[in-house]
Nucleic acid binder design. Structure first.
Length: 707
RNA sequence: GCGCCCGUAGCUCAAUUGGAUAGAGCAUCGGACUUCGGAUCCGAGGGUUGGGGGUUCGAAUCCCUCCGGGCGUGCCA
């Protein structure tokens, strides 16, 4: 397996160059570069291991921040596994590594502990020197990568014809965060919103426009009217489908009941207890299935009844009995180049895009390009032709399929009616991306239910590229062969009932109304807090609104980003805007509080940052806080190792905020016992605020000066 | 049926990808303090990491098996 952990790149500066000069302050400002400490240490270990004849980068992953402060600041664990390989006792191996390790400019004498752990403790002077540099560094110590990658990031990807809903949150928010982190680290990243602007939903709008248009409404608010048309047609189509489906469901129910009865008597008749148990289990499963089917039938019946109870809807349904078919025809006409449908499509698009843009503006999300499905139309037929010609795909039951040995189901790239699919567009899109950007990686931020699709897509794309390479090694598509293709998958947002998040009526929740609700909730919290201030409220209604917007939207984003990407999580306004715990609200509040200290202290932060005052890390709390600040670069870099934003939120909360509060409790700042100590502590405050701000910014979350 | 993912404290989630004594926040209980912004801090209880077996110096993490759940699975995206 290829590890994505970045190897310390390039020749390292000789440790000698950093060694303390006799008689001089060893860490004069100009002598120390800002660094990702972890990577720097890994580089040092790489050198030591090379001296022992080992150059496997895997060992370097075993250099990690120490889990327990008793073990120092960093620890290296490679001596134990290496001992097995070398056939020598692990402690001896550890000693040998230490012998070759040159870290005396950064660390105190390394210790070998336990079965063979190498524990490292940073030298206080080094910590102070690094912090001094941080004061004036706009990047807060985060270095740019030495080898920038070109990365295409595919995220958000809503359908333009229908309003965005809760299902789009995770892709948009995680994608945006990854975009920001890539950019900040110096990668060349292309944010691409692969919108659905060419599918069946457009057929629905076209059909709706031709039959149900409210012209006045359309003139006044085209987006709203189009959304209304979409919902109306969608409802009528569903109604028809449900009507067709109901008999089939009932038949299934009958069959299932029959099987159940059969199994029941079979179970009764079985003597063998083991066999009986097995049958019982089958019985249980069958009963569960039946239960589910009952529910499904009930839901379907309810949906049908709802339409029929509405005289207007029922009338429309009667007038448009073949609506499902007609919608597909409208879509097909659009694809075939029908003049009117193309004209309408062009007419609708700007309004649809503007509606999306409004939400993105509110979320603070940006893209470099928005190339929807329609953009790749001309490529679809040639792609399929080429796949057939190269023997990657073949015809089967009238459709064109790619059969992969490792997958049981084929990837279908052309339906038997000649239409192209999602998979076809994805292949064409990859081809285009290779031609235009020749990226080192293409990342798809898409929910986990599509993992099979992406496995098939990636395998097919590679096979395709390989066949192309055999004929035409210069073809841009061959770049695909050493391009990372990753499905950055994520779990489902659940309601408090543990089921996918929906309204009480069972509809999906619109994104915009969700944001409104969050902001309202935030406004209540902000107002309550402002009213309760000992010196009286200090925010105007306007300011409260602005703060609430930052708090509400920040809360939604942070809740999403702070959870492990692959797991499902429960959506709850209370939890995400809790003022204690790992939330955006807490982090924003911590920031505002620190800024308030600086304000009340009448501190000129510019002067503070540029001053040469010494930093005094006398207490344990100050020292720990300083170390936490120095670890920001590691936390940022780690996000991209496995595309995990929650590693950054973990850092902000557990590492930084925790150590800051400990410091804040124990170390008076404005009332510090001496002026130099006061200034030193103000520097720590300022740095903490800046790291919080930058960290939240990388998550796409705003900070406010007062709240 | 087959495939993928998951199961961690009463609840919601972490655990630097195999490291030392599995951590936070809610909730519960007990403390602190004349607010540098109390939206605070400190402490306690709470765990056979779904069960069992295996791999090795070392397992929540890897392998096997069973139990329980989610998702997907030939013409949607």
């Amino acid at each position: 397996m290829i590890s994505r952990i970045a190897c310390p790149a390039g020749p390292l500066r000789s440790p000698k160059a950093l060694a303390p000069r006799p008689g001089g302050f060893p860490f004069a400002k100009q002598g120390v570069a800002l660094m990702n400490l972890l990577e720097e240490l890994r580089g040092r270990f790489a050198a030591a291991l090379r001296a022992l004849g080992e150059d496997d980068a895997r060992w370097l992953e075993q250099v990690v921040p120490a889990k327990d402060p008793r073990f120092g600041h960093y620890q290296a664990n490679m001596a134990m596994p290496l001992a097995g390989k070398l056939g020598r006792p692990p402690r001896e191996v550890a000693q040998q590594i230490v012998h070759h390790l040159q870290v005396d400019d950064l660390c105190q004498e390394p210790e070998v502990a336990g079965p063979g752990f190498i524990n490292l403790r940073l030298r206080p002077e080094f910590v102070v020197a690094q912090l001094q540099r941080l004061k004036t560094d706009p990047r807060l110590g985060v270095p740019r990568v030495s080898k920038p990658r070109t990365v295409v990031l595919d995220y958000s990807s809503p359908n333009v014809a229908k309003p965005m809903h809760v299902g789009h949150i995770r892709s948009t928010v995680i994608g945006d965060c990854l975009y920001r982190v890539h950019k900040f680290l110096g990668h060349h990243v292309i944010g691409d919103n692969h919108i659905g602007d060419w599918g069946t939903q457009f057929g629905m709008i076209l059909y709706g426009y031709k039959h149900f248009l409210d012209a006045d409404h359309y003139r006044q608010n085209p987006v709203e009217e189009l959304a209304r048309l979409y919902r109306l047609v969608n409802r009528l189509v569903s109604y028809r489908q449900q009507q067709e489906e109901l008999p089939r469901l009932r038949q299934q129910q009958g069959e299932l009941r029959g099987r159940l009865a059969q199994l029941e008597s079979q179970t009764e008749a079985t003597e063998d207890p083991k066999q009986r148990k097995k049958l019982r289990r089958q019985l249980q499963r069958l009963q569960a299935q039946l239960q589910e089917l009952h529910q499904q039938i009930a839901d379907t019946e309810a949906a049908i009844a709802q339409v029929e109870a509405d005289p207007q809807l029922a009338e429309l349904a009667r007038q448009h009995p073949d609506i499902a078919q007609r919608v597909l025809e409208e879509t097909a006409k659009l694809h075939a180049g029908d003049e009117e449908n193309r004209r309408l499509w062009r007419e609708f698009m700007p309004a649809c895009l503007e509606a999306l843009e409004r939400i993105y503006r509110r979320l603070g999300v940006q893209f470099d390009v928005t190339l929807g499905e329609s953009f790749y139309q001309d490529r679809l037929a040639p792609v399929v032709e080429q796949l057939l010609e190269l023997g990657v795909a073949q015809e089967s039951e009238g459709a064109v399929c790619v059969f992969l040995p490792e997958e049981s189901a084929p990837l279908i790239v052309r339906k038997k009616d000649g239409a192209f699919l999602y998979a076809t567009t994805d292949l064409a899109t990859l081809q285009y991306r290779m031609e235009r950007w020749a990226p080192d990686a293409v990342l798809y931020v898409v929910d986990h239910r599509q993992s099979l699709h992406f496995r098939q897509l990636f395998a097919t794309a590679r096979l395709w590229a390989k066949r192309v390479q055999e004929r035409d090694p210069e073809n841009p598509l061959t770049k695909l062969l050493d391009c990372e293709l990753t499905h950055v998958s994520f779990g489902t947002i659940l309601g408090s009932d543990g089921k996918p998040f929906r309204t009480r009526a069972g509809d999906t929740v619109g994104l915009e109304s969700l944001l409104d609700e969050a902001v309202e909730h935030a406004l209540r919290i902000v107002s309550r807090n402002d009213d309760a201030k000992p010196t009286g409220p200090e925010l105007s209604p306007e300011q409260r609104r602005r703060v609430a917007e930052a708090v509400g939207i920040g809360a939604i984003k942070y809740a999403d980003l702070s959870h492990h990407r692959t797991s499902d999580y429960v959506f709850s306004f209370e939890k995400m805007m809790s003022t204690t715990g790992n939330t955006a609200t807490y982090m924003q509040y911590a920031y505002a509080r620190i800024r308030s200290i600086l304000r009340r202290g009448g501190v000129d932060v510019e002067a503070l940052r540029s001053s040469e005052d010494p930093l005094l890390l006398e207490s344990e709390q100050e020292h720990r806080l300083a170390l936490a600040l120095l670890r920001f670069p590691e936390a940022v870099a780690e996000v991209l190792v496995d595309y995990r934003p929650n590693l950054l939120t973990n850092y902000l909360f557990e590492e930084l905020a925790t150590h800051f509060t400990a410091f804040y409790e124990q170390c008076p700042v404005l009332k510090a016992p001496s002026d130099p100590l006061r200034r030193s502590r103000l520097v720590l405050c300022d740095l903490t605020a800046r790291v919080i701000q930058k960290g939240l910014e990388l998550l796409g979350i705003q900070t406010v000066e007062q709240m």
